[in-house]
Design a protein around this nucleic acid. Structure first.
Lengths: 337, 337
DNA sequence: TTGAAAGCGATACCAT
DNA sequence: ATGGTATCGCTTTCAA
């Protein structure tokens, strides 16, 4: 298998130490022996064993990345940006996907700890006990939270402005004249859900629209959204607009609307969230909220690399701006409503 | 930081060996000391150092996964399936994304080797020297190739049937009556490109349609496809159908067609490939070719796990079936053409 | 300029 | 049933 420093030392007839000096480019070695050893190492295809190195240096140059399945989240954007940034910073990515039907985050964190990762970037799930992340920090692992907020966590956190996302989506519909708006929303047990709901609620109450009765929770998948929407459409006094927690939900909403023979936005308006790939090419291009996923990921990596370099950073929350992406799925409510 | 076996031994007043026996659940230890040590380990939050363990066992339980940016490929599906499968098999995923504007695969492989991964799953890029993968195998790393073919590589390979993909897409258009079809295709230097082109070519020649003059290469991005399509539409004797190498390319094609004020499929038909998320919700739902990404990934993991378990597998090519997904973007050519 | 030795944390094997 | 010791491959420190 891979040859070791000892093999080279033996082959060169020198000691381990000399080989190390030659390969690491340190002084205190004659140019000739250095070149000779380097050449030998190359022909013998010597590759330093990072595992062994990690052991002596107490540093693995590994960063754990925990994220969710892309069904629920634009993970691919995050994963790609993060992996690239970490690699450029000299770290390799140990990836874990955690989600409802996947290994729980607690388990994943335990694994990362055993693998002695130097740092972790985590996109927290809605259900994760904050203690999990506190554990990481206490163990001395550098941590940055991406796209979520863990209360009182002594670590930098980066998130999109969920409050604003809810507010501007709702305000957009209100400005168009809608008064009866259904919000297919996120459970408010998560910070994301709370902030989003608060944004919607404040926009509603500013316009005198009741919130509670218009807030409906749906499971996070397209077909659940489709079924729920069908019910909504059948109900008396149906809404003139639907505000979906995510573009994936909006897909289900649109399906149900088309199936009912209604037109978007003439009969009913739809707003999504996330600006997923393809949302601009929908049969009716979707009005949605854009989250700067790549920028969030980049800032996250930048912070982690600074922490890993030994800098100390404030454990603050960085909230990045979101924008309304105005497309064709929203318009004024139908006349007479 | 993390406490070690030695710390526990000292705290318990026993030797390292005894601690190990207690924790590993081996025999030759009294129940009382075992329980006492286990309890102690729990309160001291002992976590075995996998790095150190790897060193003694010559096995890291790490698998390197090399894939491409999702812009070019449905990487997220692959990544998720693979990560899950590996985790269930007891391995963690060391992820690397390699692509045109990313670190080259040669570099990535070198890194994986230094990290002493036990196995590798690689989605090969079009430009990678086969030697890179041979190196892996020679070094004793278990390897399975996913969604690509490296000639003469002594490792199992899994791919979609690219020949069939090209053939059935072309045949579908021919059956509808098209005779002038532009193929916005893949460079034929890759095996994928060769197979795909061969499929299209055979369908064409069976129908007496010339291939060379209808084969156009485009850079793999939406706007390049849009520009190229605009040129195609402006040319004299424009095609009645466009066969795109990928749904992403098809997006650009559709944009250009809409911009030219033409209708799909009335004026021109479009076939994509890949069945990406959202292609079913396009303004005109896209007829495309479905590749069983998840199944490919699953089979890939299954094979790698067997290799890692010590089984020897034939170095064959597993080709999974692809299907035409018939949607609304294809129809008969306009009358008189 | 070069070599020797200790140690990182866990493990396997031999000795008691 | 328990303890001691060598080893994995590399790094660091001290000695020659």
């Amino acid at each position: 298998m891979g040859c070791t420093v000892n093999d080279i030392a033996r082959a060169a007839g020198v000691s381990r130490s000399t080989v190390l000096r030659a390969l690491s480019g340190k002084p205190d070695i004659s140019t000739e022996t250095r070149d000779r050893i380097r050449e030998l190492a190359a022909t013998m295809k010597y590759r330093p064993n990072y595992i062994a190195r990690s052991l002596t240096q107490g540093k693995t140059n590994l960063v754990g990345v925990i994220t969710k399945p892309s069904l629920y989240y634009a993970s691919h954007l995050v994963i790609e940006s993060v992996e690239q940034g970490l690699l450029e910073g000299g770290y390799s990515t140990l990836l874990f996907i955690s989600g409802p039907e996947r290994e729980a985050e607690e388990q994943v964190v335990e694994r990362l700890l055993k693998n002695r990762v130097d740092g972790v970037i985590a996109v927290p799930g809605a259900m994760t006990a904050p203690a999990t992340y506190h554990e990481l920090v206490e163990t001395g692992v550098k941590l940055v939270i991406l796209d979520g907020i863990i209360d009182e966590l002594p670590a930098p956190q980066i998130t999109g402005d969920n409050y604003k996302a809810g507010r501007i989506a709702a305000e957009h519909l209100i400005r168009l004249g809608h008064r009866k708006i259904a919000y297919l929303g996120i459970p408010t047990i998560s910070t994301v859900g709370r902030d989003r709901a608060r944004g919607v609620q404040e926009a509603f109450s500013a316009a005198g629209i009741p919130f509670e009765e218009n807030f409906l929770e749906v499971a996070f998948n397209e077909s659940a959204a489709e079924k729920r929407t069908a019910e909504i459409l059948n109900a008396a006094n149906r809404p003139t607009a639907i505000l979906a927690r995510h573009d994936i939900i909006a897909r289900g909403v649109l399906r149900a609307i088309y199936a009912a023979g209604l037109k978007v936005p003439d009969d009913i308006s739809v707003v999504g969230s996330g600006n997923i790939l393809g949302s601009d090419m929908f049969r009716v291009p979707l009005t949605t909220i854009n989250f700067p996923a790549k920028e969030m990921a980049d800032q996250c990596v930048a912070k982690l690399l600074r922490l890993l370099a030994g800098d100390s950073l404030p454990s603050d929350i960085t909230m990045l701006d979101v924008q309304l992406v105005l497309r064709a799925s929203t318009g004024p409510p139908p006349k007479g409503l």
